[in-house]
């Protein structure tokens, strides 16, 4: 249990998928203009990550990993090179399915999350989490915790960024720095504060 908690805290703060590994920056910049939309996208990312990471774990360890096909009589088979194309297809399919289910059963939730779901399919944070999960040899339970933790960390970063951008809206920034450059420098400062959690051990 302690290991899982420590993995969660680690993926939220120290190994923050956005501020330490630079994943999902495109939508981080585009959707952090208001706190409401940032929160909506944040929840959508948490949800999709918590689902895709274990599903991709099952597919990788059940079909693609070296020796995974021994139950079908192919113990020598190593399909791990197919993981990129498989993961991206699984993510796109899950996002599509989730979108249809939400649309059918909860129009209210769809109204707030629906617009973000297609955007998430090509978000590098989602594919990146699945690839990290394979590379770090997580177990099935760890892959769920890691997915949820990465999503939470991403949401924390984008909501904080939206809040900061609201505060600095009328700041007098030098002309060339205004906009994208300024956001990157704020992100740098945020990354520094998130690094301070690295002293914590659970």
């Amino acid at each position: 249990m302690g290991d899982l908690l420590s993995l969660f805290v680690n993926s939220v703060f120290i190994g923050n998928i956005l501020l330490a590994y630079f994943l999902g920056i495109c939508s981080f910049i585009a959707v952090s203009k208001t706190i409401e939309t940032a929160t909506g996208l944040g929840f959508a990312v948490i949800f999709v990550l918590t689902v895709t990471s274990p599903v991709n774990w099952l597919i990788y360890h059940g079909l693609l990993a070296p020796g995974a096909l021994s139950w079908a009589g192919f113990p020598e088979m190593d399909l791990s090179f197919l993981k990129f194309i498989t993961f991206i297809a699984v993510i796109a399919a899950i996002v599509q399915a989730v979108e249809m289910v939400i649309d059918r059963y909860s129009p209210l939730l769809y109204a707030s999350l629906g617009v973000f779901l297609p955007l998430i399919a090509v978000n590098c944070a989602i594919l990146g989490t699945s690839l990290f999960m394979v590379e770090r040899n997580h177990t099935f339970v760890e892959s769920v915790v890691f997915g949820a933790g990465s999503g939470t960390g991403w949401m924390l970063a984008i909501v904080s960024m939206a809040a900061i951008r609201k505060k600095v809206r009328y700041a007098d920034v030098p002309a060339g720095l205004d906009g994208f450059g300024f956001i990157m420098i704020i992100a740098g400062l945020m990354a520094m504060t998130f690094m301070m959690f690295s002293g914590i051990t659970l």
Binding site: A191, M192, M195
Partner: peptide, 30 residues
């Protein structure tokens, strides 16, 4: 700090500033 993540954010921010300040490059407003 440069080999850690924040260094990359700062450098990108400053490079964008430099590029926007060069003549002949139109830059987007926020």
């Amino acid at each position: 700090i440069m080999v850690l993540a924040p260094g990359a954010f700062f450098i990108i921010g400053l490079l964008v500033w430099l590029k926007n300040s060069l003549p002949g490059v139109s830059h987007e407003k926020k």
